[in-house]
Design a protein around this nucleic acid. Structure first.
Lengths: 213, 213
DNA sequence: GCCTCATCTAGACGATGTCTAGATGATAGT
DNA sequence: ACTATCATCTAGACATCGTCTAGATGAGGC
């Protein structure tokens, strides 16, 4: 897939080629069977070549995660742009984009939200993750400004993000198979995901009083 | 930690000893650095011993996940029992138990919801997972019976489970650090998690109409 | 045209998961 | 009590992995 420019000693654009190979390996083999050496093989370079560009495996995965966050940001923005002016509808659309991205990029989605343990990951990952978060945050700000200007944004943001992220996670980990129709994961456009999102967006526009806690 | 009974050739209860060792390794080293050989080392047996009891690494992790689900079920039931008779309060308490379990058993929680790819995992894992799901399902059934008897259970269940699971996941993956107070992950009893759960439980008792979709 | 240095290769090392053959001993049948 | 069976566990080998080191290559600045 990734073009290997003849057999020159210097690749020319090895970094990008490795990222592309990494994404392919991730999609085909999954996170468990992801391998640095396989990525190098696909890019047509030696097994130690990735180390020079990404340090180690964790650094490589961090850059792949950053690519994933950039894609997620784009996907969410596209859905939002096509959802009309109503803030609640835009938030709903963003949720759909988030879930659809997770389903279509399972392994990539998995590494995106995997905390390193070793610090905070690369600066690029932080930038990309922050940008994706910003889309959600801005959409929520518009919803609250239009429907509940007195509501503190953080709990609403936590609920929306958690619900969407949790649904996406449970979906790709096959935990919702028993709850889904026979269509399975594929027909997300009309099924459980939509109903869940509707219930959630409703919650954010309803009064915050609660019977008991 | 796990008692190694002298140096008898037959361990006597190697299966349980390996599970205990596995849980310890998981807690200390995390999922990434989890190793079959290290578990065998801690149990005082040869590196190939686990294979006879669990088949391969995936089988071992599946049994560990089953242990985790049993613990989660217990934790949720305990919280529910101490939350009084109101269904909504019980659901809220179950959510607290779910999140607290994830925080206190990060690595174990991570493998519990990791889909194998190779089939459905062990029968024991399916049993334990089903039992944990049953706690949530029953609590939701009581909430709907008391507050919204006409509401279809699946969307509400999906929202509640997704929100709780998503919040727990984002929390242990350090994605909510920017949203949390200076107390960080530890003070869950009064902070963002509680506010999010309140908003969620409220949504499940409110009318299901929604302005726009 | 030369020199510097980023880029990439080749090989080695320790560690891991899994396979195989064989050692051990608990247990059941007689 | 004796023995055979078979689950249990050991020891070693093998392919593969991530990472380290030394060295080869050649693009670009002077």
């Amino acid at each position: 897939m990734t073009s290997k420019p003849a057999d020159r000693y210097h690749h020319g654009d090895l970094r990008e080629a490795l990222l592309a190979a990494g994404e392919a390996v991730l999609a085909e083999r999954g996170v468990e069977d992801f391998t640095l050496r396989e990525c190098a093989r696909r890019a047509g370079v030696s097994h130690a070549a990735p180390a020079h560009h990404f340090g180690d495996a964790a650094g490589f995965l961090a850059e792949l995660a950053a690519v994933g966050f950039d894609r997620l940001t784009t996907a969410m923005e596209e859905r939002r742009a096509g959802a009309g002016p109503e803030p609640l509808a835009q938030l709903h659309a963003i949720g759909r984009g988030y879930i659809a991205f997770a389903v279509r990029n399972r392994a990539l989605f998995q590494i995106m939200f995997r905390h390193d343990g070793t610090g905070v990951g690369s600066a690029n990952l932080q930038r990309a993750g922050g940008a994706a978060f910003g889309v959600l945050q801005a959409a929520m700000a518009r919803v609250l400004a239009a429907h509940r200007p007195a509501q503190a944004p953080l709990p609403s943001l936590a609920l929306a993000w958690s619900a969407v992220h949790g649904f996406a996670t449970l979906l790709i980990e096959r935990q919702l198979d028993a709850c889904l129709g026979q269509g399975g994961i594929q027909d997300l456009e009309t099924d459980l995901g939509g109903a869940m999102l509707t219930l959630m967006t409703h919650a954010l526009a309803a009064p915050p009083t609660i019977p008991a806690g």
